[in-house]
Design a protein around this nucleic acid. Structure first.
Lengths: 200, 200
DNA sequence: ATTTTATTGGACACATCTGTCCAATATATT
DNA sequence: AATATATTGGACAGATGTGTCCAATAAAAT
């Protein structure tokens, strides 16, 4: 046998996730990813086929991180409004904690590429569908508990949560963290009955 | 005197607005703009200094289109919820009417560049501030009229309208138009008292 | 017709990025 | 020590993009 791999392939993908999140698809080049990952260009091309392939794999891996997050939301006993705020506020706090206010790769990619690239849609469509179903389930449960207004349509409310998160992520790029948090709180409050608003 | 200018400088800027809206800052090159504007590269550089300069001018001109829109919202006698839905639904319908689902240049730019470029912030910051003030004024008025829930903070609610519009624009890039419209309706309904929900 | 200005295509230097290739070096196994 | 594999830097061709320049052409004025 010979020399073993010294860098972790997955760590390079994680770097790629960070760089693509920060600079977007069109704004990222191989040099940036290699620099972030502390590997040489040659090592990059020895290990991966192309920058585009790495982008798709980064996007796939990134969306996979949502699986345990959805699992948590669906199994927790906390009231629905508290879970919704935990989700929104948590994601936004994480984004604001970073100096560069790097947003979510999925949302950034949807905003940048729309439906232009089939391979991207193949990754993002099921991910979005899974999130929408999770949000809708949460809202329906909250309505049954009397925490969430029952005059709101569960399907479009669930979709709205997804849209609001995307919009708050844009705001988080350019506005103070406290303002974004207050917006998230106001949004969840608007979905709530008076009783529900006490629960988060 | 000699030959007169055959193309309208402003029409080129309008083309630039369209191209930058569609492909983003990093994804746009001079050739795309010239093609869209039906002028030669040389004509472009005879008239403008650089692609970056055209981008900034396009952004400036685009934000200026908001001035009459805000004026309308602030002077109309319609109930606040109706005006909010007119604003959200109108912008989104316009975006969905286009085959490519091209979004708003300001929102796209904020999402893509964040606070990285000073010249961009100089343009977008006052524009955003003007919109936030408009939304907040509308919400305060709606609360006074009993159309909008008065347990919602007017400042963060106004900011939330701006964020929601940005988020719905992302969704409008990838989701069916009817879904996006239903989301806008659900959002305005969530801001409303039962009485207010009747007004739009 | 002549002059003045606008526009165009093409060529250019310069820069950047991609993906490939090779020679040199480092690190593991036998 | 010998061997096998990993990694690296550098060089490379090809593509693409920017901004400049010039010669040719088109259209308006006098």
């Amino acid at each position: 046998m010979g020399r073993r791999k010294t860098f972790d392939e997955q760590a390079v993908i994680d770097s790629a996730i960070a760089v693509f999140s920060e600079h977007g698809y069109a704004g990222t080049d191989v040099g940036l990813v290699c620099e972030r990952a502390n590997i040489g260009r040659s090592s990059f091309y020895n290990t991966f086929d192309s920058l585009d392939a790495v982008f798709l794999r980064a996007l796939r891996d990134y969306t996979a991180t949502g699986i345990p997050a959805r699992e948590h939301l669906l199994t927790s006993d906390l009231p629905a409004p508290a879970l919704l705020f935990e989700r929104l506020g948590g994601e936004l706090a994480q984004q604001c904690a970073n100096e560069k206010r790097i947003g979510c790769l999925s949302a950034n990619t949807a905003a940048e590429l729309g439906r232009e690239v089939d391979a991207v849609c193949t990754i993002l469509d099921p991910d979005r569908a899974a999130w929408l179903e999770t949000y809708q389930t949460l809202i329906t449960r909250g309505q049954a508990d009397g925490h969430i207004r029952d005059d709101l349509d569960p399907k479009s409310s669930g979709e709205l949560v997804q849209s609001v998160l995307a919009g708050l992520r844009v705001s988080a790029r350019v506005m103070p963290a406290e303002d974004v948090d207050a917006q998230a709180r106001t949004f969840v409050a608007a979905l709530c009955t008076p009783a529900g608003a006490e629960t988060f």
